[in-house]
């Protein structure tokens, strides 16, 4: 009996998912009420789900450390910071929410920034410079030289402080840099198209074989 109920619930879920997928995709024809309904359902469901998860997190990472037994009193601090956020809706004490925001943003930015210099700047620079000294066949060496030229000319393009660096025969350098950047943007755009196709083929796969149950 339980298996049959599970199967029915699963089947209802598949039908709802199929309906919402078709409704969302219908926007490629034009904006329509079906799309609006699916869009609002998605936002509502996501907000509801996030709220439930947030409640779970407040309990798991805060309240359970304080009540019913006091395991670690320091866990009162994040709870207070969280409560500060809601002062945004208070007419006179709204300024308190800024402290909550400041602490959250400050901690997150610091966590990312401290390691960012090594991860995003120094390692990349070392890699780009050392690439010129890498041994390999002619194609590899040519590729490495192109990479370094692209790096230098693209960087040069963004030197706007001295207009003379963009004038006369020096003007060829940023122009070459712009060409490299255009190629990079083309690559980025192509991969964006690939991603969209990938996502859509995934949904088509669901519609054809999980919803319509066509023979694979």
């Amino acid at each position: 009996m339980a298996d049959i109920i599970t199967e029915i619930i699963t089947e209802i879920g598949i039908w709802i998912a199929a309906f919402l997928t078709i409704a969302i995709v219908s926007v490629v024809y034009r904006d329509n009420p079906l799309f609006k309904f699916a869009e609002h359902t998605y936002v509502g469901a996501a907000a509801g789900y996030s709220f439930a998860v947030a409640i779970g997190n407040i309990r798991g990472y805060g309240i359970e450390y304080l009540y019913p037994t006091l395991k670690d009193p320091w866990y009162i601090v994040p709870l207070i910071i969280g409560v500060l956020m809601y002062f945004r809706y208070h007419r006179t004490l709204y300024w308190l929410f800024r402290y909550g925001i400041a602490i959250v943003v400050g901690t997150s930015v610091t966590a990312a920034f401290v390691r960012s210099i090594e991860a995003d700047v120094l390692t990349q620079l070392r890699s780009t410079i050392s690439i010129l000294f890498t041994k390999g066949d002619a194609i590899t060496i040519l590729g490495n030289v192109v990479l370094v030229v692209a790096f230098i000319t693209s960087l040069y393009y963004f030197i706007f402080t001295f207009p003379s660096l963009h004038a006369g025969s020096l003007g060829y350098i940023p122009r070459i840099g712009r060409w490299f950047m255009m190629i990079a943007f083309g690559y980025s755009f192509a991969t964006t198209v690939v991603t969209r196709i990938d996502l859509f083929v995934g949904r088509l796969n669901f519609l054809l074989f999980e919803w319509l149950k066509l023979p694979a």
Partner: peptide, 21 residues
Amino acid sequence: DMMLPTMRPYYEAGQVAALTG
């Protein structure tokens, strides 16, 4: 796949052992 251009430098620098779309 659209994130590959962003991640490629990290792969070239050896910070990522295998990178795929």
